[in-house]
């Protein structure tokens, strides 16, 4: 158990971050907090990828360094994912601003009531 924690600590952190992210998405009634939860969930997955690329004593995958290198491919995938994640956040926040302009609230429960009464 301790051995597992000492050699796979990043994966344990991934599990906890995914848990915290999922918790924020489910539990929070505030829409902005839900988006923060999505971001934390996403970063947990990034940590999984970047950890899988790591090797002990490896240098960054820039060929002016001495080898061995860490794997470059997960880095590339995550670079793309970060940018896509920001685009996603921007659209979600724009929708939130619009929802607030239309309904005057960001609370999920209040929003549901207002929509039911329409």
């Amino acid at each position: 158990m301790i051995d597992l924690l000492l050699t796979r600590y990043n994966y344990v952190a991934v599990v906890l971050l995914l848990g915290i992210g999922a918790y924020m998405i489910i539990e929070s009634t505030n829409l902005v907090k839900k988006v923060v939860g999505l971001n934390i969930f996403q970063t947990g997955i990034f940590l999984f990828f970047i950890t899988s690329a790591y090797r002990v004593g490896g240098s960054p995958p820039v060929l002016t360094n001495e080898g061995p290198y860490v794997s470059p491919l997960p880095h590339v995938l995550i670079l793309t994912a970060i940018v896509v994640g920001v685009s996603l956040t921007a659209v979600a926040l724009a929708l939130i601003v619009r929802i607030h302009a239309e309904y005057g609230t960001l609370d999920e429960d209040v929003l549901r009531e207002v929509r039911a009464n329409e």
Binding site: S59, I82, V86, L93
Partner: peptide, 29 residues
């Protein structure tokens, strides 16, 4: 974890741009 490119992007985009977007949102709501 030896991923400098990802670190730069995360610091600029994750900590910078995303935070700015969130702040703009709560300023408008």
């Amino acid at each position: 974890l030896r991923a400098p490119d990802v670190a730069l992007t995360e610091a600029a985009v994750g900590a910078g741009v995303t935070t700015l977007l969130f702040l703009l949102t709560i300023a408008k709501t």
